[in-house]
């Protein structure tokens, strides 16, 4: 369970999050809002990339303020632009990076890399240079590189925003196959139809929270 209590956060003069109280225990949670609504900042709270000015974020009993390493180990994070998160030049090296950080033995790393490459259909690309992949392939690589570390939760921050229609579908289909609880940040309602819960952000506050149909209605109202 992820528990966010009384969170406020400012960037300089601007309040980006105000009075956030949420507990997340569903398998599929969507977070939606306009640009600048605070949804990306909220996502960064969940694995300790950002520590809030006030309030606490607790993941399975671990406070991001105190156990940031353990929290990051639990919460995998996929960013919007795969180009800015693929660190190594070759596909398999990049997938192995997170496992090396976990200090796993070499043979275990090799085995886990093989499994994840096969699972996400990247085996034929394992020796490829990352910069030669298509946008969709890059995002699949970024997702695989996070999932190979076997986090308990996966947060995805607008992973489809920069992709064309075909690649959007490829990545969305892949997200549906993830076994762990998923928290998907997006600005596209269509991505959240099968989700259990949708949280709507506007100007740094939660303005709606519930099943997709109800939340969508509130979101469309807020956008109008």
């Amino acid at each position: 369970m992820i528990q966010v209590s009384n969170v406020n956060h400012r960037f300089g003069e601007r309040a980006v999050l105000t009075g956030i109280n949420l507990s997340i225990r569903e398998r599929r949670v969507g977070v939606i809002g306009a640009n600048g609504s605070g949804k990306s900042t909220f996502a960064r709270l969940l694995n300790g990339l950002l520590i809030p000015d006030n309030g606490t974020v607790i993941v399975d009993g671990l406070d991001t303020r105190e156990d940031v390493k353990a929290v990051r180990r639990r919460v995998g994070f996929v960013f919007q632009n795969p180009d800015n998160q693929i660190v190594f030049p070759v596909v398999e090296e990049d997938i192995a990076f997170g496992l090396k950080n976990l200090k796993l033995p070499k043979h275990e790393i090799a085995q886990k890399v093989d499994t994840v490459l096969a699972k996400y259909g990247l085996t034929h690309l394992r020796d490829q240079a990352a910069h030669l992949l298509s946008g969709g392939e890059k995002q699949l690589l970024a997702i695989s590189a996070v999932l190979v570390m076997e986090p308990r939760y996966v947060v995805l921050d607008e992973p489809m925003t920069l992709l064309d229609l075909r690649n959007k579908k490829l990545v969305l289909d892949t997200i549906h196959t993830i076994e762990q609880p998923v928290i998907l940040i997006t600005h596209d309602l269509d991505h959240l139809q099968d989700f259990e819960r949708v949280i709507v952000f506007d100007e740094g506050r939660v303005v709606a929270d519930g099943p997709p149909r109800e939340a969508t209605r509130r979101y469309t109202q807020a956008m109008a």
């Binding site: 990339l49 990051r72 960013f79 632009n81 800015n84 998160q85 660190v87 950080n101 996070v146």
Partner: peptide, 16 residues
Amino acid sequence: KMADDLSEAIEARGYD
């Protein structure tokens, strides 16, 4: 801009 994103991404994957 890339430097900020990339540092975040590296730390998110548990690099110490």
